[in-house]
């Protein structure tokens, strides 16, 4: 393919879908010797954009995600989703974790249907949506299988399908492909792009893989070593209709190099055990 990569990103309506203002997170603050893990961080996620966060290990990337998911509340600052402050897990937000979160006691089908069934959607609708999500993630032949019979990549597809089926408007992914091999990761990246395009959801991806961030995102936020702060936000300028083949485009190399340039010093700090 030879898309007009030179063109600037598809015009994104600058509507704030989720917003962090001065978010700080200190662990164990009550004892006074807390670990300052994150912030203060400001972040505006535009509706429908694909935003990635890269940063050295332990920089608070996952903490940032937890705050947006409502799994932990900021020590200082505010977090809001669709104009309302985040207080507990907000409706319309789905998360895919790095660890395999499929339920080993349920078949693929039942895993995907789990959330819908308990939210009281009628059986026919459940079947329709589960069928769609399973088909979308390429799990058709495995719908009766159990997670233990699947590879790591397939199990992560199950988790993505389980999130997808709830039709979230904001999808948070916490290093979802971290445990997979490189080829599988590239292909899963394609799946993710397809999912993003078809659902129109806003996506926030936490990753440690610079190439993944450079290939998938509209914007990439680069975080510093702990306490994590955004030291750069990079616009990739890719068209909305893209896939893993853009790795052969010269700008892919430039973007990755730029990210590494920003991150190298920060990663060294982590390596030397700051």
């Amino acid at each position: 393919m030879s898309p007009a990569l030179a063109s600037v990103a598809a015009p994104v309506p600058a509507e704030h879908h989720a917003r962090l203002t001065g978010v700080t997170r200190v662990f164990g603050a009550r004892k006074g010797t807390g670990v300052h893990a994150l912030g203060p961080v400001d972040l505006d996620l535009n509706r429908g954009e694909f935003f990635s966060v890269v940063g050295p290990s332990g920089c608070g990337k996952s903490t940032l995600l937890d705050v947006l998911a409502g799994l932990s509340s900021p020590t200082a600052g505010t977090a809001e989703f669709e104009g309302k402050p985040i207080n507990g897990v907000p409706a319309g937000v789905g998360v895919v974790f790095q660890e395999d979160a499929s339920f080993p006691w349920l078949s693929v089908e039942d895993n995907v249907a789990f959330g819908l069934r308990r939210s009281g959607v009628d059986a026919a609708e459940v079947a329709r949506r589960v069928d769609y999500a399973i088909g979308f993630m390429g799990l058709k032949d495995f719908s009766k299988a159990y997670p233990a019979q699947l590879s790591g990549g397939m199990r992560q597809r199950v988790c993505i399908a389980r999130t997808l089926v709830m039709q979230p408007r904001l999808i948070l992914l916490d290093e979802p492909f971290g445990a997979l091999d490189q080829q599988t990761r590239l292909l899963m990246g394609d799946e993710l792009l397809r999912l993003w395009r078809e659902t129109g959801a806003t996506v926030l991806l936490i990753t440690h893989a610079l190439d993944e961030a450079a290939m998938l995102s509209d914007r990439v936020g680069v975080m510093s070593a702990r306490p994590g702060l955004f030291i750069d936000v990079l616009e990739t300028g890719w068209p909305r209709d893209r896939d893993s083949r853009i790795v052969s485009h010269p700008r892919f190399g430039e973007l990755t190099a730029h990210l590494w340039d920003k991150l190298r010093a920060e990663s060294l700090k982590h390596l030397r055990g700051s």
Binding site: V95, A101, F114, R118
Partner: peptide, 28 residues
């Protein structure tokens, strides 16, 4: 696995539902 607990929270489960639908089958 800790991640199952996080998943239960994302699904906004109460303690009883979580015990019956997540913890018990996971520990079985």
């Amino acid at each position: 696995p800790l991640v199952l607990g996080k998943t239960a929270r994302m699904m906004r489960m109460g303690p009883i539902e979580r015990a019956l639908k997540i913890s018990l089958p996971a520990a079985l």
